[in-house]
């Protein structure tokens, strides 16, 4: 299947996962306490360990979720960053949708 035939829906295909491999591996690493401590202590040094490019590092350090996904990040890995620097899934969703959180909850999820 051609993964991007559905509008605004980046599927995790061969090209995307290859592009995002280091970024996702970095995030996957946060599943162990020692790596979480290393991330907290010196985020830049932790990211360097995984060979992240300058634009990948910028996206992570700015918590730019839309950009991380554009660079091949997959939310299931990236979410481990939110365990260290708490942010709700709906806020990550709102950021990607280009909406403020309240608008996102109301317009996309039908909350009042």
């Amino acid at each position: 299947m051609d993964p991007d035939r559905i509008p605004d829906t980046p599927l995790f295909d061969r090209a995307r996962q290859r592009r995002g491999y280091n970024l996702n591996k970095m995030a996957m690493g946060l599943g162990t306490p020692a790596n979480r401590d290393a991330f907290r202590a010196d985020e830049s040094a932790y990211l360097n360990r995984f060979g992240l490019s300058p634009e990948e590092k910028r996206a992570v350090m700015a918590r730019d979720w839309r950009e991380m996904v554009r660079l091949g990040g997959n939310v299931f890995y990236l979410l481990k960053i939110s365990a260290i620097d708490p942010v709700r899934m709906t806020e990550i969703g709102a950021h990607q949708a280009g909406m403020d959180h309240e608008t996102f909850l109301r317009e996309r999820l039908g909350k009042r």
Binding site: T9, N74, Q96, A97, R108
Partner: peptide, 11 residues
């Protein structure tokens, strides 16, 4: 559900 891309929040 959709968690990624600008269609995030689709249900």
């Amino acid at each position: 559900h959709q968690l990624q891309g600008s269609r995030a929040g689709f249900t």
